[in-house]
């Protein structure tokens, strides 16, 4: 428990430093309106966590089907819940950024399309879980759905945007290249990615513990 406490405080300090440096250490990037580039330090990690949570969900789903351990089902569902949260956050921050940069909240940019589908997958996964009252059946059916979604995602990420671009070349507005940013930008973004990943791991372990306690209390009734 001591180690976990230290890690928790370390995470707190780390994210505090990231937040402060996101606003003061880095100068606004060129080609961006006003201070809008700073949102990237929060937006990109959120999108990364949304994808990471999806990966964790899929891996634990496969593990559930292999081992039939209820803990794996808990892991998959907790990760999906967090993934939905971060996907919503990433979508919202992205829309705010889009409003400032391109004057519209939503324009079906390929990235926006991909995150929307990820949101739909999370929503569908959680809706399915809510619609089955047999714990064993819920675990295996939702695991199967997670795997099906996992198989679909590569088609979205790699194939859909490309076709989409070829159709609507005028919507290619995502022109930021790495050369426009100084090394400070990269440092803070990387640090933020690490911080957000830590935050995800922390929330994930708490979520799993809560759900395990909830299930144990149900078992006590049993």
């Amino acid at each position: 428990m001591r180690v976990a406490d230290i890690l928790k405080w370390l995470l707190f300090a780390w994210t505090a430093v990231v937040i402060v440096s996101a606003f003061f250490y880095v100068r606004p990037a060129e080609g961006f309106i006003g201070e809008s580039s700073r949102i990237v330090f929060f937006h990109v990690p959120m999108a990364w966590i949304a994808v990471l949570a999806f990966l964790v969900s899929c891996i634990t789903s496969v593990m559930y089907l292999k081992r039939r351990d209820p803990k794996d089902d808990i892991r998959a569902s907790v990760s999906a819940g967090l993934g939905l949260l971060f996907a919503v956050l990433a979508t919202t921050t992205g829309a705010v950024f889009a409003r400032i940069m391109w004057n519209s909240y939503w324009n079906w940019d390929p990235r926006q399309t991909s995150i929307t589908i990820l949101l739909l997958i999370y929503a569908a996964y959680l809706a399915l879980r809510g619609a089955i009252d047999d714990p064993e059946r819920r675990a295996s059916l939702s695991a199967v759905y997670a795997i099906l979604a996992f198989v679909t995602v590569p088609f979205l990420v790699f194939v859909v945007p490309r076709i989409y671009w070829s159709l609507h070349p005028d919507t290619i507005i995502n022109t930021r290249g790495s050369n426009e940013f100084d090394s400070r930008y990269t440092q803070v973004l990387m640090a933020s990615l690490v911080g957000f990943t830590g935050l995800y791991i922390w929330l994930y372990t708490i979520g799993c513990r809560i759900e395990a306690i909830r299930q144990r209390r149900r078992q006590e009734v049993l």
Binding site: I117, A124, L128, D133, L156
Partner: peptide, 23 residues
């Protein structure tokens, strides 16, 4: 096959199919 085993079936079929069908 998945939604047939759930309690609320009608809407669930579209909700679950659509993300997989979109690409």
């Amino acid at each position: 096959a998945i939604i047939a085993r759930a309690l609320t079936r009608g809407a669930l079929f579209s909700v679950l199919s659509l993300p997989l069908l979109l690409p």
